[in-house]
Write a protein that binds this DNA or RNA. Sequence first.
DNA 1: TTTAAAACAGACCGGTTGTCCTGTTTTGTC
DNA 2: GACAAAACAGGACAACCGGTCTGTTTTAAA
Lengths: 218, 218
Amino acid sequence: MTARPKVRPGKRTNDPEGLRKRVLDVAEASFQARGYHASSLGDLMAAAGVTGGALHHHFPTKKALALAVIEERVAAAVEETWIAPVRAAGSAREAVRGVFEAVATELEQQGFVRGCPLNNLAHELSLADPDFRTALASIFSVWRQAIADKIRDDQQAGREQGTDPQRFAALSVATYSGAMSMAKTTQDAGVLRDCVRALDERGPCNTAAVRQVCHSPD
Amino acid sequence: MTARPKVRPGKRTNDPEGLRKRVLDVAEASFQARGYHASSLGDLMAAAGVTGGALHHHFPTKKALALAVIEERVAAAVEETWIAPVRAAGSAREAVRGVFEAVATELEQQGFVRGCPLNNLAHELSLADPDFRTALASIFSVWRQAIADKIRDDQQAGREQGTDPQRFAALSVATYSGAMSMAKTTQDAGVLRDCVRALDERGPCNTAAVRQVCHSPD
DNA sequence: TTTAAAACAGACCGGTTGTCCTGTTTTGTC
DNA sequence: GACAAAACAGGACAACCGGTCTGTTTTAAA
């Protein structure tokens, strides 16, 4: 995939940053497709065109490599597909709708579903190691925080009322995570659309305040 | 944990069903706590007090063992904690609320969160093998179907209107799955309560039919 | 009692895994 | 150019994994 400088012996060019990036690229992709435990360092070395010595120089252990993938790549992926769109959108609800739709469309034209990078690793590694767990938990935290902040912005601008920011954020993240889990298992991104529609087609209006005004004609 | 008949050599008692059950017990627990790849057959054999020959007799491969765990144990767990309560509840919405609360309470007094057995294995194994994927997908399917059926019952009884059964089911399952994912990562079941409250505190009432009647005083 | 199949015991093996280690080359600095 | 540190090469290795194999014991049917 990436062009690797394989010159004939005698001439070597050190490129620590490029090599590190190549390793992270390969590791990120392999962890996403096969998971952490099913990805062997041998496979990663071969795919990245990197020797054992070089790999060990940049990432002393497999755990260190995974931690770097989580902190640099997974966090960036969440930032790109969720946090930035949320900040840029007109409202939190629009943002959620937009991301669901965008991801669904992207997955459909891609033809297969590998799942959410964060959730994939969260399931496999949260209980395996405390360092993994805290790194993953902090990504969930900033994700939720970004959505909650947006709701507060909406409320200050009068676009939203009576919505608990924390709970709305929790619901959004949970629904997306779970929908991606199902989409990965069924290999069908349609469930993302089902969820986002159920989410804003709203339900029975059974909040006490609403129930008084919103009664059904029957 | 389970009493295993370890008599002195010369006396042996064949107990194929008991042995099989012991292996499944141990495998289910280990897959839940450590995952599939991180669970070695050696560990399982030791924990179950079973020799290699016996294990191989009942489960020729590790994959066969995992498939049995999925089809017999994981499916049963979903049935027990979700499907049965849904059928027994007064309405689908009550059922969802009840399961979220019950699981949250159970996890809190338990002190730690191992996550949803189905989602744990779904993330790790869906892409690893087609047989795993279809087995897991069918559990998701019956889970969703049970909720959708309950919504239809509610509608026929006049307890519910204007709710798409499939979408509601998708949303319920997705929210639960994602909430359990977060709960596992943060080791805090509180997110389950956040989600279920956000789910029935309802949102902006922006469905076309509702928007006409249910306008906000501002 | 005979007998065949099922149930179980336990050693064995080839392959893989992650890590370490020793050496060599490149690179920046004085 | 000297030199030390960083960057990289590549083999070695011990532990482990999953699966297989042969043999023994139990069990139930005949």
